[in-house]
Amino acid sequence: MELLLQQILSGLATGTIYACMALAVVMIYQAIGHLNFAQGEMATFSTFVAWQLLAWGVPYWAAFVLTIALSFVAGVLIERVVFRPLHGAPALSHIVVFIALLAIFNNGAGFIWDFTIKSFPSPFGQTTMFGSMLNAHQAGMIVCTLVMLVLLYLFFSRTRLGLAMRAAAANPESARLVGIRVGWMIALGWGLASAIGAVAGMLIAPIIFLEPNMMLGVLLYGFAGAVLGGLTSPVGAVVGGLVVGVVENLAGTYVPVVGSELKLTIALSLIILVLIFKPSGLFGRAVAKRV
């Protein structure tokens, strides 16, 4: 029983990371209707930037905030420079460009910081707590993510800019008709997604170690979470990410061999099952198809 509880709690802790990645993916999906396959590599690159800042002696939280800010700006720039010309282009063009970005960030990170595994510090330490149910870093991950989610919720529900972003995502044509600069709202969505990814990367790096391919598997779980929650629902993405984290951990503990060796396959099966049996996810809206 205690083992079960412990596994659920630590599943929730990693689930927060999947939730962040899912949220980042949904943020861009809502803005442009495509899945950002480069989200993971962007987050990894951000984490390397944080690592570099720390190596230069910047205090942890200063580096944390600075990395988020830089990632935000980079996200906005990527949209303005790379994706704006693609507006209205077919899905295949988008997929190829996402993949190209993936290659650029992956290789760029490997080129600048090389491919050896690096350890990344945790500001929370590793002491265990709650009767050895969780360690301090896992608890810190949960708290950080919760704080970020609350801030995002307030931004989208209480500020005019947040409202404008929601309007631009929901109905771009009407948004233009009330004077919203839809293109910039999309770019802001990219900035936020990139910043959220940076948080996820910096929080997961102390657990899985930093290297250029760090986030590929994490992104797959993020996709699974986003699909489970329904790609049109930010709340759903967070819940989906948490569920995926718990499922992954329980499978790893209780299902022999397959559970621990086929973690990515579990994510894959989850994605396919959800897409087949409930394509709109747990929280998403079904979209009618026009003929």
């Binding site: 409202l163 309007a167 929901a170 109905n171 044509e173 009407s174 948004a175 008709l177």
Partner: peptide, 11 residues
């Protein structure tokens, strides 16, 4: 005020 009204249905 466009045809089809153009309100934000989910808001």
């Amino acid at each position: 005020v466009p045809d089809g009204r153009g309100t934000f249905a989910q808001l």
